[in-house]
């Protein structure tokens, strides 16, 4: 949308602390979950892969397995 001739935009470059905090939490959680989790986050829970395995299985790692490889992150 363009401004009318008699208007000017007031701009600020500062990012609020709230925005920085929210985005850093999203960054840390997402990268850890997909890239580096070895059962720390959902290791307590029953596997969601339908295998009927007991809780404690590292199913989240297996769930994200293909993206972990595809994104160049270390995996087994």
């Amino acid at each position: 949308m363009s401004l009318r001739n008699d208007q000017a935009a007031k701009t600020t470059t500062g990012v609020s602390k709230k925005a920085v905090a929210i985005l850093l939490v999203v960054l840390a959680f997402g990268v850890f979950m997909v890239g580096f989790d070895q059962g720390e986050v959902f290791g307590f829970s029953v596997p969601a892969d339908g295998s009927g395995s007991p809780s404690g299985t590292n199913w989240a790692h297996e769930f994200y397995h293909d993206m972990r490889h595809a994104a160049g992150l270390p995996c087994h």
Binding site: T13, V15, V26, M33, E62
Partner: peptide
Amino acid sequence: WQKGGEIAAGTILGLSLGALFGLVFAYAR
């Protein structure tokens, strides 16, 4: 099941790298 997980993982990874990218862009623009 694992290939479905890749789709979910792509969205989560995109969200998190997008968060980093947005922050850097806001300061560097």
